[in-house]
Design a protein around this nucleic acid. Structure first.
Lengths: 237, 237
DNA sequence: TCAAAAGTGTTGAACATACACCCATGT
DNA sequence: ACATGGGTGTATGTTCAACACTTTTGA
């Protein structure tokens, strides 16, 4: 059953790397680990590791996510980002890395992972020049994907601890996009778009001022209709 | 330098598979090959092959594209789609496949590829139940990606032979989306969106009726501004 | 002359933006 | 009382969808 028995098929190591993003205060952050082993020992990198022989790619990503964040049931959106396999991207040899994008609320400071000397949130802007391997490119692609996805999916809620206020959700957009949004129009848009958010029990004054209604993310599989327009006309949707 | 010298890192074969889509007459088609070698000999599959030891993933995809279509400089849009690595997806052993999506104009019937007994365009709907491996899932993802990308990028032109008429471009949307678009509104929308298409020399009557102005795809790197709306309000763009 | 497709003008509805204004809390 | 943020109402502009109408060819 082994591949190399059949004929001369080149082999490679397969890894997963994770770009775990969160919104903290007023900047977009990513989880970085300081590498405890060569190559690039002592440098910062995205969390990741090799895929086990009988392990699915997504399972490997979930495992790394749990390991690196230190939380067993870390609630986060996880999706495949892209695969990076340029020869020479890893000095150890041919390594093809499947990168995953995770969006997480700004909750627990991760305790140091097993094989990581240190793990911490760092602003993506600071991180761009610090990362080992081709991780700067992976991170850049991750940020771009996240920015784009906020435009046409209700995914922003993945950055918020549940339940959240509309203002907290708005802050996600403002930080990720680097723009200011009108609180009143944003409130209307988000609350009137069916399936985007659903009211939760209670209110909070943690943001100051008048108590704010709490919300949860809408059911994941609910259709999110005119969040986006046709863009080319005439489609009757 | 070999990986297995360092420690026990599991290895896998890395392949690329191509979902090459085109719009023919009135249906969306994909290029399929009839497999000439086991496994699944005689069954239909997406074109693909193993990545060479010192070959970049994109280069492997381009190589396969050229090989399978039989054209050296096959003009087509090519982008990475997703990576499929579930254990057992290939009976020969652990094979991680990086799938690429290609959008091509309906031009030359491909001559049979090297290791393919036959290669032909087939409607994606017919193909769904016929493909080997997990290729039905790959094709489904490819079609979904293509559908989505038409909504917010000027990519439809990749399906058209250059230069093309607005009606031909409209046909792409109608076939890919399975909807009817108003020719008049579509014409206005496409021609007034800056950077989407640029007028080419001459006109044609190949579609019958009054001569139609010919167009080419807009410069790839031109910004495609409000092809999509903010979707969440307030961003001043 | 007629069919067929290209292309323009126009109108009402839907939606986005901007902003006036009121509400409910903590201090 | 007043500062702070939550939330609603409303006017104005832009875009979309529907469709009447004119233009230019081939048969």
């Amino acid at each position: 059953m082994s591949l190399d028995m059949k004929q001369d098929i080149p082999l490679a190591a397969v890894a997963v790397d994770l770009a775990i993003l969160t919104v903290r205060e007023d900047s977009l952050m990513a989880l970085a680990i300081r590498r405890g082993i060569p190559p690039f020992k002592g440098k910062w990198a995205l969390p990741g590791g090799f895929v086990l022989p009988e392990e699915d790619l997504t399972a490997a990503a979930r495992r790394e996510l749990a390991e690196e964040t230190g939380l067993a049931d870390f609630r986060a959106h996880l999706e495949q980002l892209a695969t990076y396999g340029t020869p020479g991207r890893d000095p150890r040899g041919r390594v093809v890395s499947v990168a995953y994008l995770a969006l997480a609320p700004d909750l627990p400071l991760p305790s140091a992972g097993s094989d990581a000397a240190a793990a911490r949130w760092m602003p993506v802007d600071d991180l761009a020049g610090k990362l080992a391997f081709d991780h700067p490119a992976i991170l850049a692609d991750a940020v771009e994907r996240a920015r784009a996805k906020l435009e046409y999916t209700p995914l922003a809620a993945a950055f918020c601890a549940d339940p959240f206020t509309i203002a907290e959700l708005r802050n996600v957009y403002e930080v990720v996009w680097g723009v200011e949004l009108d609180p009143r129009n944003f409130h209307r848009k988000v609350t009137t778009t069916r399936g985007f958010v659903v009211p939760a029990d209670g209110t909070t004054t943690r943001d100051g001022g008048r108590p704010a209604q709490l919300y949860s993310a809408g059911p994941a599989d609910v259709l999110r209709p005119p969040l986006m327009r046709t863009g080319v006309t005439g489609a009757d949707r």
